[in-house]
Amino acid sequence: MSLPWLNITDPFPSVNNLVDPDPEVPGLIAISTEISAEQLKRAYSQGIFPWYSDSQPILWWSPNPRMVLKPKNLKLSKSLKKEIKHILVDNDWEIRVDDDFHATILACAKQPRKGQNGTWITHAIMHAYGELHEQGFAHSVEVFFQRKRVGGLYCVNLGSIIFGESMFSHQKNASKLALAALSAWAIQNDIEIIDCQQETEHLTSMGGSPIERVNFIHHLEKHCGKKSPNWLFNKYALSHWLNHQ
């Protein structure tokens, strides 16, 4: 099998019982030269996401297994929970939702990452996800200290499922605080999983675990069509973790 090249309106190959087109690159299922918000929505609803660099065409992936985080399984250290207790009563700290999506995705693009040169968050990616944000499907969770954005993440939301994309941190634990707030809010809104795409040691340490792609696709089919919750929360969502775990 060869990898299909897609025009921007072409359908993605079905990932149900998919055999990797290129066994040497497991999870890579298609290639395209363009990317759009509408294409992204179709991709996410089918368990597919883009990941590539500036020097490559747009590569579309659906790995098996799939890394997910069940919000209720998020692991927080005792020291981080102690920090949360302090943050909840310290007016210098804030968590805002969708305060500046574009600043957040740009910060994620500039975040240095061990073992990586450059970023997959290209100008085309920022433009496409920016359109998703304007349509209400992409969101940012941003951590502020003394009115400066010190960490955060951005994600996609279809129905009652969240697709995590990238995080950044300019201060210790700032991205973990964003994830903790998002996870607590997800629990309150009966969101069962946050898609993390690919397995890493960091995600495993935070409570993520792999599931078979067929189970992930079944979850998408069940939850993507539901009504999305209102994205309204702040740092007080973190209080959930002082009463649980």
Rank of each mutant, 00 (worst) to 15 (best):
M67Q: 08
I211Q: 11
L182K: 11
P65S: 03
L28H: 06
A124K: 07
I193Y: 09
R113T: 03
W51P: 04
T122M: 00
I84F: 02
I187A: 12
V68T: 00
G115Q: 00
M1T: 15
C108D: 02
I48K: 04
K85D: 10
I217Y: 01
G47P: 00
S239T: 03
Y236G: 00
I95T: 04
G159A: 10
I105A: 03
Q46C: 10
W241C: 06
H223P: 08
D20I: 05
L6F: 01
W51T: 02
Y154T: 07
C155Y: 15
L80T: 13
S45A: 14
L80W: 12
V141M: 09
A181M: 14
A174D: 13
N64R: 05
E38T: 03
M167C: 05
S14H: 11
N16F: 14
W51G: 01
S2A: 12
K41P: 07
S32P: 01
N234P: 03
E212T: 11
H223Y: 15
W93A: 13
P4C: 02
Q56D: 12
Q146S: 13
L6H: 01
P63R: 00
L182D: 10
N243C: 09
G115L: 00
M1W: 10
E94V: 04
I194T: 13
Q39W: 00
R149I: 05
A124V: 03
A237D: 04
N73Q: 13
M67W: 03
V143K: 09
I193P: 12
K72F: 10
Y129P: 03
P26Y: 06
E34I: 04
N215R: 14
E142T: 07
D98K: 02
P11S: 05
C224E: 08
L220A: 08
P229Y: 08
P210I: 10
Q197W: 15
A128C: 04
T204A: 15
I58Q: 02
A180F: 05
W241I: 01
S140T: 07
L132N: 04
M167A: 01
F137S: 05
G27W: 02
W120K: 04
W5G: 00
L74F: 07
D92N: 12
I217C: 06
G151N: 08
E192P: 12
K75R: 05
T200Q: 11
